[in-house]
Structures are given as C-alpha cells and as structure tokens.
C-alpha cells in the first residue's frame, strides 16, 4: 500500500503572532515551528497501517522552505519511510493542494492522510482540495479508520454525533484526534531518520484567485466584570445574572 502523509509545519500553539510588511506576512523571527498537531495523528495511524500491511511504504510530503526540514525529520523519526519537500512557501490551501497533487500523481498513492486543519490559517480545506484535484473521495474529521481490501470504513465527526463512512481506495482523509495516538520519537528512530531519503522538488507554477490582503490583531478586550464569591456566593450570583440580563442580554 502506498501511503502518503501530508505534513504542514506551523507556528507552535503558544506563539503570539505579529506581522510584517504592512501586516501582510507573519513575522517568523523567534517563532518555533512544529509539525501540525493533526498531522501527528495522521502519522501515528499511517505507521500502524503500514506495519499491518507488509510491503507498504509511507511517504511524507511537505510544501515548505528549507527550515521545515527539521520537522520533516521528526516525521521520519516516528516511522515514515521517505520524505519529499516541495520547495516553496505554502501560499494557501489551494496552492498547496495543487503542488501535492502534481507530485503524488507521479509517485502513486492508495491512502492520503492530511490533517483536519492546520493550526495557522485554520482552513480545513487542503485535503479535500487535493482529493478533488486527484478525483478521489475525501472524508473529513476522521476519528477512526479501518481498511480491508480495497475499502475503508471510517467514523467522522458531525454535529451531534458521528457518521460512518464507507470509502473506496484510493482515497484521502482529514485526521482528527482519536484516529491514532501521536508517537514520541525514540533515539533509534531519530538516528534512523538522518539517513532516510528526503527529496527536494521544485514547485510547479500555480495561480490562485484567493489573495491574502492583511492581518490584524484582535482589539484588546476591556477588563471583564468579575464578582467575588468569597463570603457571599448569593450576592455574586445575583450580580452576574443582573449583568448577563441587562448588559450582555444573553439570558
């Protein structure tokens, strides 16, 4: 089975973003980049799938500049077999999907893992765009995956429950928590990762009709109104209800 895991390198969750060049770009100075958390779930499930299907191979694909390589090595350290870096800044989901589509058409695929979303621009679209580019089915926000023969059974999150989805292979999916338990790389994995193949490919020309214009930081909230329960819980509760009914008008 040819397994592809798309990995996005994103600012660490705790990053406080600032912007440069007229607020058009993220200021990357001092920002630590990590493997997108949802892609860690993908990697975990992909490794188990590979191990259960002898002869399978996991190829990790990233669209990113040279500084993403340390994160690609992490993906190799937890068990991926080889990696491809498409040497370009990931402009947006549409751009990334087209770049990855171009590469995987060449190398072939049975199952393509993406994350449910990346935690930078929170689009939640790249896997689905990629699937449409490749004319294969896509299932979003997948919390469990079982494959037998040429068919996959998945559960995906929907409002108020889960949906059981049956999909033919080849297919793509967007991983959500639950599909696999993220693997922490061990010393042997890290050592092996150094010698696993990492190929760099140049991007193809892609234009999209979606342009990022500007970023802004949310306006700071005014100080909230907080009531102390100490001594008299009833007073605090009454004050809160008063505020919610008269000011916030939410009850």
């Amino acid at each position: 089975m040819k397994i592809i895991v798309c990995v996005s390198c994103v600012p660490d969750t705790t990053t406080k973003p600032t912007f440069i060049e007229n607020n058009s770009k993220l200021n990357e100075q001092g920002v630590q980049f990590i493997v997108n958390p949802y892609d860690e779930y993908s990697l975990a499930r992909a490794v188990a799938l590979r191990d259960a299907n002898p002869g399978s191979k996991i190829t990790v694909i990233t669209v990113g500049e040279a500084n993403t390589e340390q994160n690609i090595r992490k993906a190799l350290a937890v068990g991926a077999d080889e990696a491809i870096r498409i040497n370009a800044k990931p402009v947006n989901g549409q751009y990334v999907a087209k770049q990855i589509a171009h590469v995987v058409k060449e190398i072939g695929f049975d199952v393509i893992f993406t994350g449910k979303e990346s935690i930078d621009y929170n689009g939640g679209i790249t896997g689905n765009l990629l699937a449409e580019e490749l004319n294969i089915p896509y299932t979003h926000s997948v919390t469990s995956l079982e494959i037998s023969g040429n068919e996959a059974k998945m559960e995906r999150e929907i409002e108020g429950g889960k949906e059981v989805v049956k999909s033919a292979l080849p297919m793509a999916l967007g991983s959500q928590k639950g599909i696999g338990e993220p693997i922490i790389p061990n010393m042997m994995g890290i050592a092996k990762a150094r010698t696993k193949p990492l190929t760099v490919k140049e991007p193809v020309a892609v234009e999209t009709s979606t342009q990022l214009v500007t970023h802004e930081l949310p306006k700071p909230k005014g100080a909230g109104k907080f009531f102390k329960a100490e001594g008299n819980v009833q007073d605090a509760v009454n004050q809160l209800i008063e505020a919610l009914s008269k000011e916030a008008k939410t009850i």
Binding site: T13, D120, Y121, N122, Q211, T214, H215, L217, P218
Partner: peptide, 21 residues
C-alpha cells in the same frame, strides 16, 4: 469581494480578496 476570518486559532484576523470568476 473582501472576506475575513480568525486565524492562528483566534489570535489574529486575516482579510482576503477573492477575485476568481
């Protein structure tokens, strides 16, 4: 067409122009 959304998990807002057919 100018559209916006929160990005970086709510830590910033981003504005986009959509100019496809």
């Amino acid at each position: 067409l100018i559209v916006s959304k929160t990005v970086f998990s709510g830590k910033a807002n981003a504005t986009f122009s959509l100019n496809g057919e």
